[in-house]
Amino acid sequence: MSLLEVRDLSVTFTRSGQEPVRAVDGVSFDVAAGQSVGIVGESGSGKSVTSLAVMGLLPSRGVQVGGTVTLDGNELTDMDQRALRDIRGRDVAMIFQDPMTSLNPVVTNGRQLVEVLTRHAGLSKGEAKAEAEQLLRRVGIPDPVRRLGEYPHQLSGGMRQRVMIAIAIACRPKLLIADEPTTALDVTIQAQILDLLRTLVAESGCGMIMITHDLGVVAGLCDDVHVMYSGRIVESAGTKDLFARPSHPYTDGLLQSIPRIDDDDPADLLHTIPGSARDTVAWDRGCAFQPRCARAVAECLSGPPAVTELGTPIVPHPVRCLRPVGQDVSLHEGNVAR
């Protein structure tokens, strides 16, 4: 059984006087212990809302969450706030994009760490202090004793993110959710943090969900990838499989449109996906990517697109597309007429 099972998760935002917005729509995925799972998407794809829903961190007013989230056999979706708080910080921990706003600016780094350790791990104050020092050392912070007595603003961005990670792993969580943890950081610092996360997952055997817009980050870190577009997962596969044969036109277009640093003979113009994420279709009417898709046919607008399985039962590679890239002839002969 998987560590985390997300089944048919949906999140709808309702605001008075406005059409409800379905930000996440029928999302299902698994995370096994020791596994890193990437959720990739652009702004508005619903990737961050998915992670907040898994953590139970969405506000209750104006938000409807459907589906189930099961962690280690415990169903989180119908747990009360109190039990959920216990789980957060102990079994599941989250790392956010901006470490400055996630750390309390008026409390020393040490106290923030100690607080987590005494509350969730049940350590005494003395034990917690010693453990906090160990944790900072473990996440690669030099001179941890001094850093414990300092405030978050006295640290650089990279150091702050390390402190956040130290807080997140303080109680040896089973699942780590990292929401764009390196987006605010410079490349060399990003490399340090990704390296640290890789090591932590390998050493502790926890599962990790990596929310990112950067396919490069996914390529270097994740075992499985789910690509989200407009609230739904449009393609899922093992990382190598996905990069070897991106099959949803969106994934494919995205990969082709990214300039690569190791491209020794860059083409004059980049491949582009036309339009923007605003050009969309409601999923129940058709494929949300249809207005931007070069492979679109009339059928793409006749109801929600079915999922095509391109993998095997053991190594699945589902694609939510009627005409996956590289599959035209075998699957949908005759659909090509527009």
Partner: peptide
Amino acid sequence: LMSAVPVPDPNVEESRNRILLQGD
């Protein structure tokens, strides 16, 4: 700097030699 830039290709990522800079 070059070695730190992630490349959207797991095979390249696997075999790359990273020079991790220390500190800020």
